[in-house]
């Protein structure tokens, strides 16, 4: 009886020491899950998730927010998020989006130079000054849509990015048959 008590106590002590040591030794710094989540998000900063940017949404997911709120990321991102968080994949909350990448385009002859789109752009991809024509830096445009609404003259279109020979996806079946 006594031996058993002593033995168990000793065991508990040893394991306690081991656990304590492990906790010190392998402590995880910070909250890497947020960083991991953020890395998965498309960084469009569009706010369609209801959070002001990708980082806040990543933090929200880490705190239990739903994973299906990122329309630009699409199903693929949602699945990755589900995988990382260990939850069931859910269909996207927003209405089915077409996944073609789009960029904003300002019809320059209609632009009045109001700078509203510049203020709306989360990634500073629109250049221009008051009363002067604005234009979109296509390489930096994330296609977030945020500049379309503020435009008072509706001169911003979201244009699908056209395929070229460098970005072609090798879907041979998609090429129409021609005759010689």
């Amino acid at each position: 009886m006594l031996t058993a008590v002593v033995l168990l106590t000793l065991l508990a002590l040893v394991f306690g020491v081991i656990l304590g040591f492990a906790a010190e030794k392998f402590r995880v710094e910070g909250n890497p899950i947020v960083d991991q989540l953020e890395a998965l998000l498309p960084q469009t900063q569009c706010g369609q998730c209801g959070f002001p940017g990708c980082r806040p949404y990543a933090e929200a997911i880490a705190n239990g927010e739903k994973i299906n709120r990122c329309p630009p990321g699409g199903t693929a991102t949602m699945e990755k998020l589900a995988d990382l968080m260990g939850v069931e994949p859910e269909p996207l909350s927003a209405e089915a989006q077409d996944q073609t990448k789009k960029v904003a385009f300002i019809r320059e002859e209609e632009c009045i130079g109001c700078t509203k789109c510049i203020q709306a752009c989360p990634v500073d991809a629109i250049v221009g000054a008051g009363k002067l024509m604005h234009t979109v830096l296509t390489v930096n445009c994330t296609g977030c849509d945020l500049c379309v609404e503020p435009c008072p003259v509706d001169c911003i279109d979201m244009i699908p990015v056209a395929q070229n020979t460098r970005s072609w996806d090798w879907r041979l079946n998609a090429i129409p048959v021609k005759t010689l």
Partner: peptide
């Protein structure tokens, strides 16, 4: 790459 750039710019 674009996402990273967007993040930096944001």
């Amino acid at each position: 790459v674009q996402a990273e750039q967007a993040k930096i710019r944001f």
